[in-house]
Every structure is written in structure tokens, then in C-alpha cells.
């Protein structure tokens, strides 16, 4: 008798990871805060006028890169409804769309900032926080838990502080500078506040939510292997309350997918420190290896190799007035 081989599989022993539809690039046309809104529609039109040629350049460069020129490019726009609430979707969204149209820009997707904290009952910010793997200072040998200050994340070793353990009659310590782990001779030490909390609970910081936003646009977040946010097609009108607006609304039915291999954001230089913080955070997020593999396989299949490191898939244009 020949030997018989049995194969045996168990559903719950295997991991399944949903894959996201992906564009080549996701272009963020703007990010609207209360102060921009208060400055009136002219400010918005001015911003779109500045952005339009850069968006077109990006589009053209991808068309040149993709065989057959069939570049999948989607655009998005983020409105802050997390740190301050102003106006209503029914009043604000048409104004934004109108201003964009005047500059020949199409906004494919509209997102709410609070969706980066929690969307459809999934606490996205928590998911990402759990996936932080802190950048270890030299001498980190695994024997002790990673040094963390609750609610903060840095790119090196902080200065020793007065509260460190001291033994009676032991020798005292003087001041020492902080140090960047990946420094080249000199340090650029960055320490980012991820959240703070008060009696009402935890408030995520702007850079942390912006990091979640980047990960969403890169299609890198999963909850139980599922995509936590799927764009919802727009209805005939926009609701009167932000809470009723879906996390991500698809405004253009013909749009390329929301998530993309790469992202590009056109921003005012006042966001430079925020984006430095975002990169500090993103370079310490451990993305699900299965998701990374999916994306790499897909892009490889299209003949578009992607950089291994997530932060290298993100680009910016900082535009002064």
C-alpha cells in the first residue's frame, strides 16, 4: 500500500486579510480648519487655485509612469470636525465643491477628521496606537520594557529627568542632552504628543490623526482582517449634522479608488512641523505584514515597484502664499 497523505485545515487557524482597491496616487487637495472657514470662501478659492497646477503635474507624471497612461488618481479633501465644530455639512460641503469646481478641480472623496479617531464604531486611532513599535535607543537589548512616556512618542532617547530612581548616598546625575537614534553626528530630536486626556476622555493630537489619515489613504489599516472604512456614495443632499455624514463620502461616482499606493498632499508650510511629527509616528507603526505583501504583489504585478518603507510612499508639496 502506498502511504496516504492527509491534509487538514482549520478556518480559525488561518488568517484572512481583505484587500483594498488601490489607485496609484491619492492627492489631498486640502485640509479645512475652522480658521480657514472663518476667513471666507475666497481663502478656499485661493488655496484651490494654488493647488490645481500641482495636482495636474502629479497626474501627468503618473500617466507617464503607468503603461498605457492609465493612471488611477483620486483626490480627497479633509474637513476638521474633531478639534472644533463649525457650520454644517449641508452648508459647508456645497461651498467647498463650488470653490473647487471654479478652479477645475474635482474632489473625489470627502472625509471627516473625527473618522480618523473612530469610524463606524471602529476605533482607528487605537488600532494604530497598538501597532506602534518604538524606535529603540542604542543599548536597548530587550531585557527591559521599552522606555515610553505615556501619550508621547520620540525618535531617540530623552534627557534623563529628575524623577529617575535614585539610591540614598548614590552619585547624582547632571544634565544630558536628548539624542536622535538615527543621528548623523548631530541630533534632530523629535518628541510628539499623541494624545492628552481630561474628564471627558482622551483627545488625540492633530499629528496622530494625520498619521491615521495617511495610513487610511495608503490602505494599510485592517480591523479583524476587514477594511474598517469604505467610502459611501453621496446622497442627494448633505446632512445637517457632522455625525450623520459618513466617514468618507464618495462625491464623484467615476472616481478611482480612495486608497492608493502612494499619497501626495499639497499643504501650507505652517503644516511642516505637523508633518515632521506625522513621519516620526509613521516610521514607528508596524503595518500588518500580510497587508504590505498584498500591496507589494499588486504593485509588482503592475510593474510599479514601491519603496519598502511606508514614509517613502508619502510626498508633499508645501506652498507659500
Amino acid at each position: 500500500m502506498t502511504p496516504a497523505y492527509a491534509t487538514f485545515g482549520e478556518v480559525e487557524a488561518e488568517r484572512r486579510v481583505a484587500s483594498a482597491p488601490l489607485s496609484h496616487v491619492s492627492i489631498e487637495l486640502g485640509h479645512l480648519y475652522m480658521e480657514d472657514f472663518q476667513a471666507g470662501p475666497e481663502r478656499l478659492r485661493e488655496q484651490f487655485r494654488h493647488v490645481a497646477p500641482w495636482a495636474e503635474t502629479m497626474r501627468a507624471s503618473w500617466r507617464a509612469r503607468v503603461p498605457g497612461g492609465r493612471a488611477r488618481v483620486s483626490t480627497c479633501f479633509l474637513i476638521d470636525d474633531y478639534f472644533s465644530r463649525f457650520s454644517t455639512p449641508s452648508e459647508l460641503v456645497p461651498m467647498v465643491l463650488e470653490a473647487a469646481a471654479e478652479c477645475d478641480l474635482t474632489i473625489d472623496y470627502l472625509a471627516r477628521e473625527s473618522a480618523c479617531a473612530e469610524a463606524d464604531g471602529v476605533k482607528l486611532a487605537r488600532l494604530v496606537e497598538d501597532r506602534l513599535v518604538t524606535d529603540p535607543p542604542p543599548g536597548t537589548d530587550g531585557s527591559r520594557p521599552p522606555v515610553t512616556e505615556t501619550g508621547w512618542l520620540c525618535n531617540g532617547a530623552r534627557s534623563p529627568y529628575g524623577g529617575a530612581v535614585q539610591v540614598a548616598m548614590g552619585s547624582a546625575q547632571g544634565w544630558e542632552p536628548p539624542a536622535q537614534n538615527a543621528k548623523r553626528r548631530h541630533s534632530i530630536f523629535v518628541d510628539v504628543e499623541l494624545w492628552d486626556s481630561d474628564s471627558r476622555g482622551r483627545t488625540w493630537s492633530c499629528p496622530f490623526l494625520a498619521a491615521v489619515w495617511q495610513l487610511l489613504r495608503l490602505g494599510m489599516i485592517r480591523n479583524d482582517g476587514e477594511l474598517p472604512v469604505r467610502p459611501t456614495p453621496r446622497g442627494p443632499s448633505f446632512p445637517a449634522s457632522w455625525d450623520e455624514l459618513p466617514a468618507v463620502v464618495q462625491l464623484n461616482p467615476a472616481a478611482a479608488p480612495f486608497s492608493a499606493y502612494t499619497t501626495m498632499s499639497v499643504l501650507s508650510p505652517r503644516f511642516l512641523p505637523v508633518e515632521l511629527a506625522v513621519r516620526t509616528i509613521l516610521s514607528q507603526v508596524f503595518v500588518d505584514a500580510a497587508v504590505l505583501r498584498q500591496v507589494a504583489d499588486r504593485s509588482g504585478g503592475e510593474g510599479i515597484p514601491l519603496p519598502d518603507e511606508l514614509v517613502d510612499r508619502i510626498s508633499y508639496i508645501f506652498l507659500g502664499a
Binding site: 520594557p145 524623577g163 529617575a164 530612581v165 535614585q166 539610591v167 540614598a168 548616598m169 548614590g170
Partner: peptide, 14 residues
């Protein structure tokens, strides 16, 4: 050569 501690920090407690 160990001595009495000058405080109980959160780290020590953990």
C-alpha cells in the same frame, strides 16, 4: 553597597 531609595517611581512600582 545598595542604599535606601529616595522615592517610589511609577517605573519601580511596575
Amino acid at each position: 553597597g545598595g542604599g535606601e531609595f529616595s522615592t517610589v517611581s511609577e517605573e519601580m512600582l511596575r
